[in-house]
Each structure stands twice: as C-alpha cells, then as structure tokens.
C-alpha cells in the first residue's frame, strides 16, 4: 500500500462466462472503473467470448440451471422456455434501472475508453475469426500479451 496509497489505477477484468448476469457484472465493473477515472481493459475467454461474438451477443441468457439464487428447482430450470422467460424478466428489471442491452453496453464501454480483447486460445478453440466478433473489439491477445497490458503500478485483475 505504498504507491498512490494503494489506489486502484487500472482494472483488468477477465470474463470467462456468457450468462447474462456474469456479463453485466463484468460490464458494470469496467464502466464503473472508467466513471471513477480508473483505466479498464477486458479479456474475453472461453464462453466469455460470446459476449463479444457479433451474432451471439444479442442473445445471451440468464442461467436457470445450477444457479441456487434463482430459487427454482433445477429440474424446473431445465424446462424448455425457462431460460428465455427468466431472461426477459431480468431484462425488464434492468431496463427500469437504465441498464443498456449488451450491444449498447459494449458501445458505451468503447466510447468510455475501455479496451476489449479476445483470448487467442479460446478464439482458436471455438474456430472464431476476428470478423465474427463485435466490430470495435481491440484485438486478439495471448495471455502473455494481456499480462503485458496489465503492467504498471496500481493494476488489479479480476476473474469472472
């Protein structure tokens, strides 16, 4: 806690999941950092890539199975249409809070100066090309490149 009194200068947020609650958590944290004058960069890996996949990012869902906070029996959560139902409920609530849709949120993050990176290994695993992704994606990085981006005093890293 010596330099800058331990002040956070930069947030590196790694998103590895694409259920909408995780995506929003990551986006709110990145945007919130910028609003406080903190730099922010995001690294999308594994299923997190869906949040920046141009054809998929508008269709993300809430996880109704394996999510105890849904207070719904797992069997019920697995019924057809349940995810879509829970997702539309959640989207309605979020709209009331002035929360943008995923695409608009990505545009806000870019306009706010957040850097968006896709994980090279995960891109190869899913056979995605840069052209498949959100057009304003900053690039495709290896883990090593991402760590390099994180260099500097007061950087914190967060895995979601």
């Amino acid at each position: 806690m010596s330099e800058y009194n331990g002040e956070i200068r930069k947030m590196m947020i790694i998103l590895s999941k694409a259920s909408i609650e995780n995506v929003y958590a990551a986006f709110v944290l990145a945007n919130g950092a910028r609003m406080e004058g903190i730099e922010a960069e995001m690294f999308f890996t594994f299923f997190g890539l869906e949040a920046v996949h141009n054809k998929k990012l508008d269709h993300l869902h809430v996880a109704t199975v394996g999510n105890p906070a849904m207070h719904m029996p797992t069997m019920l959560g697995g019924l057809p249409g349940m995810e879509a139902f829970a997702t539309s409920m959640m989207k309605k609530e979020m709209e009331k809070l002035d929360m943008p849709e995923v695409r608009e949120f990505l545009e806000i993050l870019k306009a706010s100066g957040v850097k968006l990176w896709a994980c090279k290994l995960a891109m190869e695993m899913f056979h995605y090309e840069k052209d498949d992704m959100f057009p304003e994606l900053d690039g495709v990085l290896t883990v090593g490149d991402f760590y390099k981006q994180a260099s500097g005093i007061g950087t914190h890293m967060l895995f979601i």
């Binding site: 609003m35 406080e36 004058g37 002035d98 306009a111 706010s112």
Partner: peptide
C-alpha cells in the same frame, strides 16, 4: 447516468470523456 448523458443530444459519451477526462460524471 453515463447512458443518459450519451442520449442527451448535447454530447456523446466519447466526447464527454474528452471534456472531463477523469471520472466525467463526478
């Protein structure tokens, strides 16, 4: 909110950050 500023018609979010670079809304 930042979103609202972006929709204000006065300034877009990018320009808002250029005008007030560190924590623009604050």
């Amino acid at each position: 909110s930042i979103r609202k500023i972006g929709k204000s018609g006065v300034v877009d979010i990018k320009a808002f950050y250029e005008l007030f670079p560190v924590g623009p809304l604050k």
